[in-house]
Amino acid sequence: MLLIHCPYCEEERPELEFRHAGEAHIARPTDMAAMSDEDFEKFFFIRSNPKGVIYERWRHVHGCARFFNAVRDTVTDKFVMTYKAGEPQPKKLPGAGK
């Protein structure tokens, strides 16, 4: 069971309190109705599924109930960092470049 740092509770909490919520930084377009089929496909169906660093959403569902974002390495299953929903995608990661 992982420990996950909740950016709202400001501490590490056990994974049992959390729920994964898919890839992060996929903003819902403001003009949904006008989207092309191709753009909708990319928006709704296509996910990056990288080997390595992934930006994803989690919800501290059995804690503060907030959705937040996390950077996780899919190879090591280690969290690089977490940050609040709405904050920009971090450009520089702690310990990156290794």
Binding site: R59, V61, A65
Partner: peptide, 13 residues
Amino acid sequence: MNHMEDYLQTEFP
């Protein structure tokens, strides 16, 4: 409830 919270918190905050 989760679906509604998701949209409220992340798309329509």
